[in-house]
């Protein structure tokens, strides 16, 4: 179960408080009516499926009810950072969960 830092509550919370909302930064086209069918299909269906870092959207459903973004490694499930809608990710924010660690001793 993931441990996710909500950038609004400024705390880590258990995954069960959140809904996963898919890939982040999929902007609704400004002029839908002049999109081709292919462009519209890109918007509503086609998503990246990277092996590694993935920008994704989460909703703090049972909490502050705010949407936010996360950068998560799809292999290790490490969450590098989370950031508010409209913000740029701060990779140095120090809120990493599942840090590349260690068999430290």
């Amino acid at each position: 179960m993931l441990y996710i830092h909500c950038p609004y509550c400024e705390e880590h919370r258990s995954e069960e408080e959140f809904h996963y909302k898919g890939q982040a930064h999929i902007a609704r086209p400004d002029d839908p009516d002049n999109c081709t069918d292919v462009e519209w299909a890109d918007f509503i269906y086609r998503r990246d499926n990277p092996r590694g870092e993935h920008k994704e959207q989460w909703y703090h459903t049972v909490g502050c009810r705010k949407f936010f973004n996360a950068i998560r490694d799809t292999q290790s499930y490490e969450i590098k950072t989370t950031y508010k809608v409209g913000e740029q990710p701060d990779m140095a924010a120090g809120i990493v969960t599942g840090q590349q660690g260690s068999n430290a001793s």
Partner: peptide, 29 residues
């Protein structure tokens, strides 16, 4: 092997089978 978790190891699980090593490694970890 290496893990992404915040994990430490001590004692026989690491291959340190001697009792004295288990104790000192446990203490350090």
């Amino acid at each position: 092997g290496l893990t992404v978790q915040k994990q430490w190891l001590a004692g026989s699980v690491k291959g340190d089978f001697r009792l004295a090593d288990c104790l000192s490694a446990g203490s350090e970890a």
